[in-house]
Design a protein around this nucleic acid. Structure first.
Length: 487
RNA sequence: GGCGGCAUAGCCAAGUGGUAAGGCAGAGGACUGCAAAUCCUUUAUUCGACGGUUCAAAUCCGUCUGCCGCCUCCA
């Protein structure tokens, strides 16, 4: 039974979508003004895994996200780069889609753009004005927080609380300092026509208008970073529920921020690493593994040291996968049946899957899940060692089953455990060349010509190819150091 | 100032009433001509401090200390 932590209730609740079997989830995307950074990626990975697990459980999932392509920053940035705001937004939206591909994040079913939903937004603002929840003042339209009784229910604060320490400069034309803009007046020629003159949508209205347009007044999951709880999501609730008179979102999920030396990465502070920068040094799989090794709700401290550690841990799992793949393409022998070991292993396969589900059912606890996968890898490694690489039919079918389950779990995490192979198999030419050299080295070794054998190994190492002698012949791979220098 | 969160081994990190997952680093072993890599084994009488509730607490309550987030654009 899946339970999720709902920010709205501050409790773990049993997950039951509004419509049986169908989950509608909306995740706040980014303002396409620059390349994505690791904080955005954490969010994207998190909801990607949630989506995958919901599907694993048998739900149909409709996953929608957005690109905010209208705001001052985009205009400024476009001027800097000497292109139009549309071109800028396009450029970074495209870049984001490339980034998430590297990280094996499945794209949303739909990315909604503010610029393509202006009519819906205007309609919504208009209705809010008609219903008395919003008012116009000199070409701007504001939502009146005092008109919405539940204002503050998501972030757990009252209007009075917030006012006490408010740091915002109060705009003259607002009736209440906490009122927020639904529609902003802009200079002629820069905005859209509206009943209140030319302008732009306010920041919060887009998500409400676009999500309700696709999903209806109520949907199941709304996700985003904890830094969006207030004011963004609080305001979304206010305007959406005021508009429809219905509950807006059933489960509010929030992922923790990515920190750098203890402080939140953010565009404004400038203390962030772009996804591209990080991917120059580590594969998407490693980054993904690292980000999933903590519970999604907690903040996570980012550093390259931590990524290196993650890479080592990750390799253990990809080795198990590789070993499994290798042995399953081998011959079936007929070594002796060890019933006890077989039964134990058979049970382990089942138990690991159960543990995995238990961890995921507990608010998508991927940190625990990774522990389970490590335990599972240990089970598999031990079992393979016991067989001495000579499989009988029973071993074979058990390992086959193990591989299936292992990859099923890996798939929910979006991990493939195959990046090392990808690097090694990049070029067929490279493969054959290294094979020739290793053949030469093997004959040298047979003749106990260690000097020649070591020379070959050392020279290969110099160019970044690491040779490993295993009981089943020499293996090689491209070292991670070389990968770093290449890029 | 208001609201919220966190504090678990050298490091990272699960665990929210029943006696401390997992990873990294360290130690030992297997394999090897030697390596490297890999695999196996092992590593917290104890959970920021002090009180309290309980047969039983890292887990609940209170006080204190430290760190962080939000209250302004943010994933």
């Amino acid at each position: 039974m899946l339970r999720v932590y709902n920010t709205l209730s501050r409790e773990k609740e049993v997950f039951e979508p509004v419509e049986e079997g169908l989950v509608k989830m909306y995740v706040c995307g980014l303002t396409v003004q620059n390349y994505s950074h690791i904080g955005h990626i954490r969010s994207a990975i998190n909801y990607d895994v949630i989506r995958r697990y919901l599907e694993y459980l048998g739900f149909e999932v409709q996953y929608i996200s957005n690109f905010t392509d209208i705001n001052e920053k985009i205009v400024l940035r476009a001027e800097e780069e000497g292109i139009t705001p549309e071109e800028l937004a396009d450029k970074y939206a495209k870049a984001f889609l490339e980034d998430i591909k590297e990280l094996n994040i499945r794209p949303a079913d739909m990315y909604l753009r503010v610029s393509e939903n202006i009519d819906e937004i205007i309609e919504m603002v208009q209705t809010l004005v008609e219903k008395g929840y919003a008012y116009e003042a000199d070409g701007n339209v504001y939502f009146s927080v005092e008109s919405f009784e539940d204002y503050g229910k998501l972030s757990g604060r009252t209007i009075e609380d917030m006012q006490a320490g408010a740091r915002i400069e109060v705009k003259e034309d607002k009736r209440h300092p906490m009122d927020f803009a639904l529609w902003k007046k802009v200079e002629p020629g820069k905005g859209w026509e509206s009943p209140w003159g030319e302008g732009w949508p306010g920041w919060h209205i887009e998500c409400s208008a676009m999500s309700m347009k696709r999903f209806g007044a109520t949907f199941d999951i709304h996700g985003g970073g904890t830094d969006l709880i207030f004011p963004h999501h609080e305001n979304e609730i206010a305007q959406s529920e005021a508009y429809s008179g219905k509950k807006f979102v059933k489960y509010w999920l929030h992922n923790g921020t990515v920190n750098l030396k203890g402080e939140k990465m953010s565009k404004s502070v400038g203390n962030f690493f772009t996804t591209r920068e990080v991917l120059k040094h580590f594969s998407g799989e490693i980054v993904r593994y690292f980000l999933l090794s903590r519970h999604y709700g907690s903040p996570i401290d980012f550093s390259f040291e931590q990524l290196e550690e993650a890479e080592t841990a990750y390799k253990r799992l990809s080795n198990t996968r590789k070993q499994l793949a290798g042995i399953l393409t081998g011959h079936i022998g007929n070594n002796q049946e060890n019933k006890e070991a077989n039964n134990k292993f058979s049970r382990a396969i089942k138990i690991r899957q159960e543990e995995f589900e238990e961890a995921m059912d507990d608010d998508f606890n991927t940190a625990r899940t990774i522990g389970v996968i490590h335990d599972f890898a240990g089970d598999i490694n031990r079992f393979i060692n016991r067989t001495g690489f000579e499989l009988n039919e029973k071993n074979f079918s058990l390992l086959n089953e193990a591989e299936e389950v292992f990859m099923l779990l890996a798939d929910v995490m979006g991990l493939e455990f195959s990046s090392a192979e990808n690097y090694a198999n990049d070029s067929e030419l490279l493969n054959s060349l290294v094979d020739i050299l290793l053949d030469l080295r093997e004959s040298a070794r047979e003749e106990k010509d260690w000097e020649k054998a070591d020379l070959i190994r050392d020279r290969l190492k110099e160019v970044g190819i690491v040779v490993k002698d295993t009981p089943r012949g020499p293996k090689w791979e491209i070292s991670s150091k070389l990968r770093d220098e290449e890029v």
